[in-house]
Write a protein that binds this DNA or RNA. Sequence first.
DNA 1: TACCGTTGCCAACAAGCGTTGACCAACAAG
DNA 2: CTTGTTGGTCAACGCTTGTTGGCAACGGTA
Lengths: 197, 197
Amino acid sequence: MTGNTPADSSGPNQARRSATTRAAILDAARERFAADGYERATIRAIARDAHIDPSMVMRYFGSKEGLFAAAVTLDLRLPDLTRIPRDEVGRALVDHFLGLWEGNEDLTAVLRVGATNEAGAERMQRIFREQLLPATRQVCPDPEQVPARAALCAAQLLGLALTRYVLRLPPARELTYQELLAWLGPTVQRYLTAPNP
Amino acid sequence: MTGNTPADSSGPNQARRSATTRAAILDAARERFAADGYERATIRAIARDAHIDPSMVMRYFGSKEGLFAAAVTLDLRLPDLTRIPRDEVGRALVDHFLGLWEGNEDLTAVLRVGATNEAGAERMQRIFREQLLPATRQVCPDPEQVPARAALCAAQLLGLALTRYVLRLPPARELTYQELLAWLGPTVQRYLTAPNP
DNA sequence: TACCGTTGCCAACAAGCGTTGACCAACAAG
DNA sequence: CTTGTTGGTCAACGCTTGTTGGCAACGGTA
């Protein structure tokens, strides 16, 4: 809560050498949080990965929570769904999410932490509210149904991420990109645009 | 691994008073594991909930891992799918899972722990392999496709559980039993019995 | 030269963890 | 009355955790 980090980037021309260390800490933190979750990812281990002293982590980020907040920022970068043919938005969304998960361990981190930590769950709720909900609003006819339909999409997409990247169920890992697209695309499409079942 | 618990139930007519305490510990453990996950659920807190000394937990269950293994045993009690009309198995499965989740915090515990702990993830994999896979085999035409189809069902069902009971996304909580049945039933049905997409 | 902020390591702190062993009350059997 | 088993408490162990403060170098600036 103090927030007095010494390497604050508010200065205009501060091309400090600390930026390197800061980035190394953030990289190590992302990796550890994704692999171990919040509790098991220790500051000491993160510092060891970044080849610096644990106390440096505190100086740069104030606390473990501060480090997590700084390391795991999640922007889904959802595309503008109004520019996609109405009957392809499901497939497009699945495609987008798959590409996102494959190359970004932040998503695994945020999901893993969301499952254990209360603050992590709230962060997850905010991502849902501020990013997935508006995107759903672009394609869903009845505004009143937007939250429910977005929740259904989230359940399907996060369920895949859970089984494939967190629990690592072998059959979920063996599904190819094309297969996932073909199976999940119509599901999400239906959740978004189908009339009430 | 020692297994020398004093209150071993192998004896025939041992109606020990310890059974009460043992049950109290297991109840408290289930609740804590479900609410906090493996790491944050401490033996001390569980003992406090059960109104006994932490050392008793060790005497009864050997270790924290032993306690978790004893407390969280998961039997999905999947119905015999061959006795259900082929075009209703999806809806039946969703119905079964929803009923299971609502009254059983073990499922939340095993999911939460599976997301953080490596042993928890393996436990999840075994549940999938030994319970969901055989059930899928009962309704899926091509044996070769069974693992993939089961994985898709698991993704959808666990995704719902994740968003509704673990992350507690408000829109996911506000969906009624009937709505979930109507939305997810056809999805699972398609994953199980539809021809390749 | 002297200064001073920055970057970093080191050693330690208090707290909490899982776990252990000594001890005690009750009670049944001999 | 002794003896042994059972159900239970208490205090402590060794360890790890997040976190803190002191101290040593470096690198500009005056």
